[in-house]
Design a protein around this nucleic acid. Sequence first.
DNA 1: TCCACCATGTAACCCGTTACATGATTAA
DNA 2: TTAATCATGTAACGGGTTACATGGTGGA
Lengths: 180, 180
Amino acid sequence: MNTLSYGLLSLLSFAPLSGYDLAQKIKPLWQAGHSQIYPLLVSMEQQGYISYKLIKQVDKPDKKEYTITEAGLMQLRQWVETPAEHPVLRDEMHFKLYSLWLSEPEKAKEMLRKREEFCMSELNRYKDMLKGNEVLREKRGESHEPKATTFGRYLLIRKRIMDMESALQFCKLALEELES
Amino acid sequence: MNTLSYGLLSLLSFAPLSGYDLAQKIKPLWQAGHSQIYPLLVSMEQQGYISYKLIKQVDKPDKKEYTITEAGLMQLRQWVETPAEHPVLRDEMHFKLYSLWLSEPEKAKEMLRKREEFCMSELNRYKDMLKGNEVLREKRGESHEPKATTFGRYLLIRKRIMDMESALQFCKLALEELES
DNA sequence: TCCACCATGTAACCCGTTACATGATTAA
DNA sequence: TTAATCATGTAACGGGTTACATGGTGGA
């Protein structure tokens, strides 16, 4: 049981999903391909943290819908309350900033504009997620309280939005300083 | 030549350093231990991007001081001008926020307070680095311009400071929402 | 016709972490 | 005397990425 395993459990604690869906949903939170996820699901199923049922589909391939078990929920609850590891950020751009004096200012601006674009699209994605979460909150009849299932998701999305806004602010600042 | 290799070249383009010093200096920018760095230095030396001279010391172990070569500088210059990969952030806390409804609010607050503490200490470290860079800038007689060697470092440190301030702002917001 | 989407899986490889290994000096 | 700092290296392991493999449906 590594961090990714608990991440998958976290997603499943919210709603049952297939391996394919899990791979899509986890992407914004943890870089991991399906090749890593399928074997983990098998081992978690063997350990009794999740179970699946085969869903037969007509115009699409059949799928396995995974559901978290009581044992899985207990395991997850325990993990959630243990201290979180420090975050790890790997950003090539940091090194490219470090060596910026070797670069043509025009190339540097290009890099920052591309980063700006990326952050903007991420920001929009998260803003949509925030709306989606709000819709779900109302559908589930939940209030804006710590015990609501949508509350943590709300905080998480807010965090990602703040991160992206800060990154955008940096790009703007750097581009201005490169202009002068 | 992977990202870490170019990171090491970036540090060496600024000043000659030993493997040990490189391992220390690279930590805030890229998680990597000395066991990864020493073999990379050997292979970069074989490829002619860096060279070293043995420095004999009396009350400390001898060391190898690595210097970037002309070929290394050219390689680095080329890399700096190629588009940067998207950043990768791995933060366990994201999953713990996702599953926050499973946690006692008191435990959640503890997690956020710990994160706050971590970000504060990082922030202070970067603020010191900003001062250090300013001192170096004056010592080198550089102005605040894109071609100055200290300019990219200035931007980088500013970015890390903005990232930390945004993270702190999130902790504050989340703690407030958990309070009510 | 070719690509994207849905859906699951395996194998090889690269990268990063942890542990093993040595050894002197100095501060708590 | 126990730990930390300086200094370099190797080996094993775990995790993440890329590529291989299959196959139907639907849109450009």
